[in-house]
Structure formats: structure tokens, C-alpha cells
Write a protein that binds this DNA or RNA. Structure first.
Lengths: 238, 238
DNA sequence: ATGTGTGAATCGCTTCACAGCT
DNA sequence: AGCTGTGAAGCGATTCACACAT
């Protein structure tokens, strides 16, 4: 789930008893890999493969076979020893796990540069994520069309997402309004947010957040190039 | 003494996947957080704050103060005990660490829907990542303009990136050609790749890759909504 | 009194290795 | 034989807790 959940960090002075953290939840990393396996299986289906091994799934994704088997084992036993996995069955199983066996209505907040691109982003629709409405608060944009959708006033969010039964929102607004927008989304009934604003957003427990921060990723590349052959931990203080 | 050391490993597994002897490398997670701290400090600068504590940096990013201090400690001692960090100094220090004190020329491969949006994506330019040329292999796109840039034939990649001294490429092409494109980019001298194609790509050691996979992120939201209140690890086996 | 810097303890993810099924 | 499913080991990342600096 989200890395930006609201976190209550209590000062635990004398933690004598070992606190049972109840960490039987599946890790975030596992869920992301499941998405990769899912895509691998889609490709295997297209290639009319009937059977696939954990080794092959791993190789195609740069992972070990053990990792693949362990990930799947959190949800059940889908393979057959000595044979591998049925492509069709595993594909269906993962689609159920990820909730991709159905469609999800989605709304987009922010009809700017990124938002507009996302309306035309085919992969969302292909996996069943259907952008049903677009919101903005700029009067110049409200009423205009983005793709085949009309831009609505953000203040109309509540009735419109109720009407379309929307639980997932894509947020592509400037950083300085992101938290305010998110608060209103949660208040309107949104339960999951894909955040493109380059800032940490906070949501109540029970709401999921994923961040898509392109600036961070390219900065990691800059770091990789800058630190080539250097040892970290050198003194840079001036 | 124990005799077990002479035991032979008959099981010599062919461990093909990444054998990265991690050692004293700074973790990826640390680098990504550094980017967040950097943005936090930019905001603090705008707000004309002079000093900031690890507690505040952490709170603004949903992290513990200890995490912030530990991350920074990999690179040096930037703070002053009892006082916190100088906003200006820490900002400059992190920009040096991440390589953001300079500009980077970047090329974009794939003038489709996403690629076009990225040309107009302000955050890249603001952090010094300048898209200098755009490539595609579709004859219908070559020669046309994307923003203020002309789309070049991908086969011209080598001379053009040499001329502009480009080491970073943004790849926004369909999955089925992504690996081929990446191979040619590496061959042409690219050392860092931001990959938007929804597939794992493989590069030689010494080349950095970051993946930006929006479908994976939204699928994680679908999972979060689907698995609400359910226990994973339910018994499906007999 | 305040808040950093950092070993030590802890947590949790990944990999190993093998039992067990086909 | 071939390959999965899974406890246990291994190990990297996070958190704790406190000495130390201002």
C-alpha cells in the first residue's frame, strides 16, 4: 500500500513486550511484481504457450525463480510440481488477486499537460481502468473537452463520482494544491489515489495512495551518473 | 572441531539473474528519499526558512527523523547538533550529491502520446534535465515538430547524441520494441535510461535504468481496493 | 535544552535448500 | 527426473537509543 500513510509515531520508551506487528500483509514489492507476472502471462497467452515455469517468469523479469514462487505462494498454490504453471490458470488467478477481472471507473483531477496525456493513455483502458470524468478548477478549462470527455468543475466532484461509482482518482495537479485536492477527494468518497504531484500527500487509514514521481526517477539517474566510480561517504561538506 | 566445512555442494545452481555484490552502495530507497528532501528544502527556501530539523523533513515526507538523519549520514555530516540543518547548505549539499547542480542534456525516444507530454513536462527542465532531441522510427512522425523540437529518425541517434553530449535517454516506445531500442541506445553511448515501456529491459553493467510504469501503480491500487478486509494467505491447499 | 550522528537492535524481504508431488 | 511450495537462513534496510555537540 501507500508509503505516505498518515503515521502516528508514538514514543515508546520501555518497549518490554515484543509487539506482535501482525505483518501478515503482503508486501508492496510483491504486489508490484505480481503486475509484472501478469503482463508476462498476457504475452505468454498471446504466444499460445500453455505452460510456464517460475524460472522463465523470473528470467523475463530479472528475478530469481524462488522470488516468483514465494510471491505466488502468498496467495495460494497455483502450479503443479514437476510441470510448472498453466498459463491460462495463473493469468486468471493473478487477475483475480489484483482485481483486474473487472473494470474500474476512474476520475482524473487536473486537465493540464500530464492529465491530458493520461486521458489518451491506452494501458489504463486496456487493463480495465476507465477514465469517466475529468475535473479542474480553472474556469478557462471547465467546459472544454479533453479527448471525448468534458472538463467539469472540481466542486462538482461528489455527485459525479457517486453517479459513476468512482473509487479511484488520478491526481495531476500542481504540488501546492495537491493535499487540498486529496482531502476533498477522500471526503467525496475516493478510496484510492494515483498521485502525480511531486509532493507527499497524506490520507486517512483505509485510503490507498501510489505516487508516480517522474522527477524523482530521473534524479536517481543523475545520481547514478554523478556517483560513478566514487565511493559514497566521502566528505562533501564545505 | 566441526567437520561440516568439507561438505561438498553438489547442488550447483545456475544462478543466472543479477549477481550484484551490493556491498557499500547507497540504497536506491535512500536516493529516492534524497530527492524528496531536496524538494522539501526547495520549499523551505521559498518560505525563507533558514534552519530545518530532521524531524520536520521527516514529517513533511511521512518518514521518521532517524530515517532522514541516517540517509544524510551516508554522505556526510551536514547538520549542527542542537540546531538542525541550514536550509541553504543542505539544499546545496543534496543538489551536489544528486548531480542537480548542473544541467543534463536528455533525448526522448518515442514521439507518441506519452513522449509528447514529456516534452512539455516542466519539472524536467526545472531540475536541469533538458530534452534536446526527439527520435522516432515512424516515417509519418519523422520531420514533424513536437513542441519546439523536430522529430529525428531513430537511426540518426549516434551522431546526434554525441553532438549534444547526451548520456540520458527517456524511452517511451511500445513494449515489443523497447529492448531493441535500449540496445541501440546503449550502443550509441547512452548511460542512463528512464523507461516508460511496460516491460523489463536489460542493460550491461554500468548503465542505469529506472522504470516508470503507470499501469503497475494503478494495479496496486486495484489490489488495495480488492483485498480490503481479506486475509491473504488463506488456506487454499488441502 | 535541543537535535545531530551513529552503533546496535530489530524488522522484513530475498535467497537457499530441500521435502514432496507429478 | 523435473519443478513447485515453503521453512529457515541470510542479509539489507529501518528504527532505537544515546553519546555528543551547540
Amino acid at each position: 500500500m501507500a508509503e505516505e500513510q498518515t503515521k502516528r509515531k508514538l514514543r515508546k520508551k520501555n518497549a518490554r513486550p515484543k509487539r506482535q506487528k501482525a505483518s501478515n500483509r503482503v508486501s508492496d514489492a510483491t504486489v508490484k511484481r505480481l503486475s509484472k507476472y501478469y503482463r508476462t502471462l498476457q504475452n505468454a497467452l498471446s504466444a499460445e504457450k500453455t505452460t510456464i515455469s517460475s524460472e522463465e517468469i523470473g528470467r523475463l523479469n530479472g528475478l530469481t525463480a524462488a522470488q516468483v514462487r514465494k510471491d505466488l505462494s502468498f496467495f495460494g498454490a497455483f502450479g503443479r510440481r514437476g510441470l510448472g504453471y498453466s498459463v491460462v490458470d495463473l493469468h486468471r488467478a493473478i487477475s483475480r488477486i489484483l482485481g483486474l477481472h473487472r473494470t474500474w471507473n476512474v476520475c482524473l483531477v487536473g486537465a493540464g499537460n500530464i492529465g491530458t496525456a493520461l486521458v489518451h493513455f491506452k494501458q489504463f483502458a486496456e487493463q480495465g481502468f476507465l477514465i469517466k470524468c475529468v475535473f479542474d478548477s480553472d474556469p478557462q478549462k471547465i467546459g472544454k473537452a479533453v479527448g471525448s470527455l468534458k472538463v467539469h468543475d472540481f466542486s462538482q466532484i461528489k455527485p459525479l463520482i457517486e453517479e459513476e461509482n468512482i473509487k479511484i482518482a488520478v491526481v495531476a495537479v500542481p504540488a501546492f494544491v495537491a493535499q487540498k485536492v486529496v482531502d476533498q477527494l477522500v471526503d467525496a468518497g475516493i478510496r484510492a489515489i494515483l498521485n502525480f504531484a511531486p509532493i507527499s500527500i497524506f490520507v486517512p487509514k483505509g485510503v490507498a495512495v501510489r505516487n508516480e514521481n517522474m522527477a524523482i526517477e530521473i534524479e536517481a539517474l543523475s545520481y547514478a551518473l554523478s556517483s560513478k566510480g566514487q565511493k559514497p561517504r566521502q566528505i562533501l561538506t564545505d
